[in-house]
């Protein structure tokens, strides 16, 4: 029988207690056990970036982490990030610039973009591209995504300056 383990974690600010198979990865746990399907699974080997989310405030690949390892962690999914209001400007910029087509990469892309913006980095196109280098988008060709992130990074500049 597959082994199971009890875990307690915070997901989008809410405490979750659950018993899970130890082989279950975090992305599948969130999607299948908690019905948080905004976390998308694209490659299951850490290359495409679709499953990117935050664990303890840092962006990680949720396909490369066991749910068991999230015990005691603070996990934020796209549903929580969107509801928090933190990325409202990014979401608007993505819509305005058509920085998504099919939308499958978008949750992971938004986490990578939010990471860039939250670090108060300047609206430098090369730096943005580098920060998004682990997030695959088949639809857009990336330019509109870079446009959107730079626009928000520039807005941030007028608010408080960059690092």
């Amino acid at each position: 029988m597959p082994e199971r383990i009890g875990i307690t974690l915070k997901v989008n600010g809410e405490e979750v207690r659950q018993e899970v198979p130890v082989r279950l990865n975090l992305a599948d746990f969130l999607r299948q056990e908690l019905a948080l399907t905004g976390t998308h699974v694209g490659c299951e080997h850490g290359v495409c970036g679709a499953c990117t989310l935050r664990v303890n405030g840092r962006i990680v690949r949720s396909c490369l982490m066991l749910a068991a390892q999230a015990d005691g962690c603070d996990v934020q999914t796209i549903e929580g990030l969107a509801a928090s209001g933190e990325i409202a400007a990014l979401q608007n910029a993505f819509i305005e610039h058509n920085a998504l087509q099919c939308g499958y990469c978008t949750p992971g892309m938004l986490f990578a973009a939010a990471d860039y913006v939250a670090a108060r980095r300047p609206p430098n196109r090369e730096a943005v591209r580098e920060h998004l280098s682990g997030n695959y988008c088949r639809c857009t060709g990336y330019q509109s995504i870079v446009d959107a992130v730079c626009e928000v990074a520039a807005q941030d500049a007028t608010k408080g300056g960059h690092k």
Binding site: R31, A35, L36, T37, G38, T39, H40, V41, T77, I78, E79, A82, A83, Q91, F94, I95, E96, N98, L100, G103, Y104, T106, P107, L110
Partner: peptide, 21 residues
């Protein structure tokens, strides 16, 4: 004009096949 269906996709509220149970 911006696309009407983007809002849900930027909130993780799309419905792809694997999202259906």
């Amino acid at each position: 004009i911006p696309r009407p269906n983007l809002s849900r996709l930027t909130q993780g509220r799309g419905t792809f096949v694997d999202d259906i149970e």
